[in-house]
Amino acid sequence: MEVRTIKVFTTVDNINLHTQVVDMSMTYGQQFGPTYLDGADVTKIKPHNSHEGKTFYVLPNDDTLRVEAFEYYHTTDPSFLGRYMSALNHTKKWKYPQVNGLTSIKWADNNCYLATALLTLQQIELKFNPPALQDAYYRARAGEAANFCALILAYCNKTVGELGDVRETMSYLFQHANLDSCKRVLNVVCKTCGQQQTTLKGVEAVMYMGTLSYEQFKKGVQIPCTCGKQATKYLVQQESPFVMMSAPPAQYELKHGTFTCASEYTGNYQCGHYKHITSKETLYCIDGALLTKSSEYKGPITDVFYKENSYTTTIK
Rank of each mutant, 00 (worst) to 15 (best):
L283G: 01
T11H: 15
R184F: 03
R83C: 07
S295H: 13
K127E: 12
S79L: 13
T10W: 08
S279P: 04
G228R: 03
A146V: 04
T282Q: 12
L153R: 00
T260C: 11
M209H: 15
N110A: 06
F70S: 07
T313N: 15
K92M: 10
Y96L: 05
F217T: 06
W94F: 01
Q196P: 03
T43L: 06
L65M: 10
Q216I: 07
G29Q: 08
N157M: 03
R4P: 13
N89A: 11
A231I: 03
C227T: 02
Y214P: 04
G39N: 08
H276S: 05
T91K: 05
R83D: 04
K316N: 15
V206K: 00
L153D: 03
C261S: 02
G161R: 03
E68A: 05
K233Y: 06
Y155D: 05
I15L: 15
F128L: 06
Q195H: 11
Q230S: 12
E125L: 03
L114C: 03
Q98W: 09
S240Q: 01
H48S: 14
Y172H: 11
C149Q: 06
C261E: 03
I277G: 02
K183T: 15
G220V: 01
T159L: 09
I15C: 10
A262C: 01
K92G: 06
C261D: 01
L235T: 02
A145E: 03
V42N: 07
E2C: 11
G39W: 07
P97K: 12
C190R: 04
Q31Y: 13
L65H: 08
Y265F: 15
T260I: 15
P131T: 03
K106N: 10
L200W: 03
G267A: 14
T199W: 05
E52S: 13
T35M: 11
G228D: 01
Y311R: 09
K106H: 11
I105M: 03
K183L: 11
Q196L: 09
N147M: 10
C149G: 05
V67Q: 13
T314E: 09
V160Q: 05
T5V: 10
F56Q: 06
Y96F: 13
V304G: 00
C112Q: 06
L283C: 08
T116G: 07
D62I: 06
Y72F: 09
S25A: 14
T10V: 12
H90D: 08
K218S: 02
L151S: 06
R139H: 12
A150L: 03
D109C: 05
L290R: 13
T120P: 05
R167V: 03
A262Q: 03
R167I: 02
G143K: 02
L200R: 07
N268D: 14
L102I: 08
T199Y: 07
N111T: 04
G29P: 05
V188W: 08
G210I: 00
L17T: 09
S171G: 08
T302N: 02
V3H: 15
I105W: 03
K191A: 14
N187D: 07
L179V: 07
Y84W: 04
K106W: 06
M245G: 00
S246V: 04
L186T: 14
S171N: 14
Q238K: 01
G29N: 06
Y96P: 05
P249K: 00
G161E: 05
S79V: 12
Y113N: 01
P224W: 12
A247S: 07
L119P: 06
D41K: 07
V160W: 02
T232N: 06
T10Q: 09
A142D: 14
T312S: 12
N111H: 03
V3P: 14
G288N: 08
D109E: 11
F70R: 10
M209I: 14
Y265T: 00
T232I: 14
T258F: 07
H18Y: 10
M85Q: 10
Y306K: 01
N110E: 06
Y214A: 01
F305P: 00
W94S: 03
C193R: 03
T258E: 15
G288K: 01
Q30L: 13
A205R: 01
T159R: 13
K316I: 14
S294Q: 14
T120M: 10
K95E: 15
C285S: 13
F9R: 10
G272V: 03
Y28A: 05
Y137W: 07
G210N: 03
S79E: 14
E68I: 06
V42R: 05
N61S: 13
F148Y: 03
A231Y: 01
L179K: 15
Q30P: 06
E144N: 12
L163M: 11
K293M: 12
H51S: 05
Q31V: 15
T159N: 11
R184W: 03
I6T: 11
K54F: 13
T91F: 04
Q197H: 05
A87Q: 04
Y269E: 15
R66F: 13
K233F: 08
H90G: 11
G143C: 03
W94N: 03
I45D: 15
I277N: 00
S213V: 05
F259V: 02
T159S: 15
N14P: 08
F80E: 04
L235H: 01
S171H: 15
D38L: 09
P300I: 15
L118Y: 02
T266Q: 13
E162H: 06
A289F: 06
E168R: 12
D38A: 10
Y113V: 02
H18A: 07
D23M: 12
Q20P: 07
T192F: 09
G29A: 08
L153P: 03
G29S: 09
G288Q: 01
M170H: 05
V58D: 06
G288S: 02
P241A: 10
V3I: 12
V21L: 14
H256R: 12
G164T: 01
T282A: 13
D287R: 00
I152N: 06
N100F: 05
A146I: 02
K255I: 12
P97I: 10
K307P: 14
H51R: 04
A115E: 02
K280V: 10
R184C: 03
L153Q: 02
F128Y: 09
T211R: 04
S171C: 15
K93W: 09
N49C: 12
D135F: 08
F148I: 08
N110D: 04
K293S: 13
S294W: 12
D13V: 06
L88K: 05
I45M: 13
L283H: 00
D63K: 06
D23V: 13
T292A: 10
Y138D: 14
A262W: 03
L59W: 11
S181Y: 12
L186Y: 14
Y155M: 00
T76M: 14
Y269M: 15
I105V: 07
Y252G: 01
A40V: 14
C190A: 02
V203D: 05
A177K: 00
K158N: 03
V67F: 15
A154V: 06
G257A: 08
T211Y: 05
Y311H: 11
K255N: 08
G101W: 06
K106F: 06
G220A: 06
N89C: 14
L102V: 07
S181R: 14
N129L: 07
Y297T: 01
L37E: 13
T292L: 09
V42C: 15
K218T: 05
F128Q: 05
T282H: 11
D180C: 06
V12H: 08
L212W: 04
L133P: 03
K233Q: 14
M85I: 10
K158P: 00
D41T: 11
P78I: 09
Q123P: 04
L179R: 02
A108T: 07
N14W: 08
D38P: 06
T278F: 11
T314Q: 15
T76D: 13
Y96D: 02
G101S: 05
Y274D: 00
Y57A: 07
G143T: 02
L200Y: 11
G202K: 05
N100E: 14
K183S: 10
R83H: 07
C112W: 02
S279H: 03
S240F: 00
Y155S: 01
K44R: 13
K106G: 15
Q30R: 09
E162Q: 10
G29C: 09
T312F: 11
G29M: 10
D23C: 12
C156A: 07
N309K: 12
F32H: 08
L254A: 00
A177Q: 00
M209D: 09
Y138G: 14
F259P: 02
G29K: 07
S86R: 13
G101A: 04
H276E: 00
D13G: 06
Y73E: 02
F70V: 10
V99Y: 14
Q222H: 11
T64D: 10
V21W: 12
T43I: 07
E204K: 14
L65V: 06
Y297L: 02
K191S: 13
W94T: 03
N268Q: 14
H74G: 09
A142T: 15
T232F: 08
N14D: 10
Q123W: 03
M85R: 06
N147S: 11
K183H: 10
Q196W: 13
A205Y: 00
C149P: 04
F259H: 02
A247W: 00
I315V: 15
K219L: 10
K93V: 10
I277D: 00
Q122S: 03
Y113A: 06
